[in-house]
């Protein structure tokens, strides 16, 4: 089963549904936090649909660009493109169509600011981050920029303004991604090396640099995650929740740095996956009415 004969499931898999879902959730939180008064349902749905479509399109185009390296890695060899379940041409058409549709939805149903951020996210992810993965470990830092823009898109979707609060959400997501992706890269270090991806743990055999950076970004995340309460975007419940979550994040980071084992990297990864939706849910539920 290849090309046009591929089933719907293969095309859904090309969109990395779990990542796209997380993107939509963080965009929803950004929109909700920026909303003044009753929620504008049409604008809300337009923002989520457009953001989700752009994210899905970017994931599809990323898999298209990486299909050869994905085939060399155990973790990704089963994806539709390297496994031969979908051909490159329909995948390119699908990814391009999703990206275009998402951008049009943002432009026509939301606003120009959000559409431009969506385009920047797409370009950074597909044209900058993806090729950089084979050149330098700094690809993770560059890739964290488009990864941190969805809550900003949610914020601008509601307010059409790139205000400081939007950048606080950006910073939280940006800093969170480093320990998260470093943990993934430690857990699948050999796989990434086979695929030719220059992730930090791949070029850092003794793990000392990875350990330092895991602690550093976890430590930076703690004060930045408290900012929504300091700025009175969210209340006391958020503050204490974010403090507890952040201290635990630093704790997992220190444990991973000291242990430097695959098992501790996987524990860090599981915690980081739980951390983000809980933090954003706390922020949204404890929003200070404006």
């Amino acid at each position: 089963m290849t090309g046009a004969g591929a089933g719907l499931a293969e095309f859904v898999e090309l969109t990395k549904p779990r990542i796209t879902f997380m993107v939509v959730v963080t965009a929803a939180a950004g929109f909700w936090l920026a909303s003044v008064g009753p929620l504008d349902t049409a604008l809300f749905l337009g923002t989520l649909a457009g953001t989700g479509l752009v994210a899905a399109g970017a994931s599809c185009l990323n898999q298209l660009a990486e299909r050869e390296t994905d085939a060399r890695m155990d973790r990704t060899a089963g994806r539709p493109l390297p496994a031969g379940r979908v051909d490159a041409l329909p995948a390119a058409g699908f990814g391009g169509a999703l990206s275009l549709l998402g951008t049009l939805v943002l432009l026509l149903a939301v606003n120009r600011t959000t559409a431009l951020i969506g385009l920047a996210t797409l370009a950074l992810y597909v044209l900058v981050y993806t090729p950089l993965k084979r050149r330098t470990s700094l690809c993770t830092v560059v890739g964290a920029v488009p990864g941190a823009l969805p809550p900003v898109m949610g914020w601008t979707g509601a307010s059409d303004a790139l205000s400081a609060e939007a950048w606080v959400l950006f910073a939280i997501l940006f800093l969170w991604q480093m320990p998260h992706f470093l943990a993934i890269a430690v857990a699948w270090r050999d796989d990434y090396a086979r695929g030719g991806h220059v992730m930090l743990p791949v070029v850092d055999p003794d793990g000392s640099r990875t350990a330092r950076q895991t602690i550093l970004y976890s430590a930076a995340l703690l004060p930045v995650s408290l900012l929504p309460a300091i700025l009175q975007m969210s209340g006391d419940a958020y503050f204490w929740g974010a403090l507890g979550l952040g201290l635990a994040f630093v704790g997992f980071g220190v444990a991973t740095a000291r242990d430097r084992s695959v098992a501790s990297a996987r524990r860090m990864l599981r915690y980081s996956v739980a951390y983000l939706p809980i933090l954003f849910a706390l922020m949204a539920f404890d929003k200070v009415a404006s």
Binding site: T136, S137, L138, V141, A161, L162, S163, A164, E165, W167, V168, A171, F174, L175, L200, R209, R212, Q213, L216, Y217, A220, P223, V224, L227, L231
Partner: peptide, 30 residues
Amino acid sequence: DVEMVWTLVPAALVVALALMLAGFVDGDWA
């Protein structure tokens, strides 16, 4: 040298945020 960049990025981000929040940047929020 690459790790130096890794290390400077979060500080640059935190300083940029601090400048914005202190009102040095002529943004909508400020």
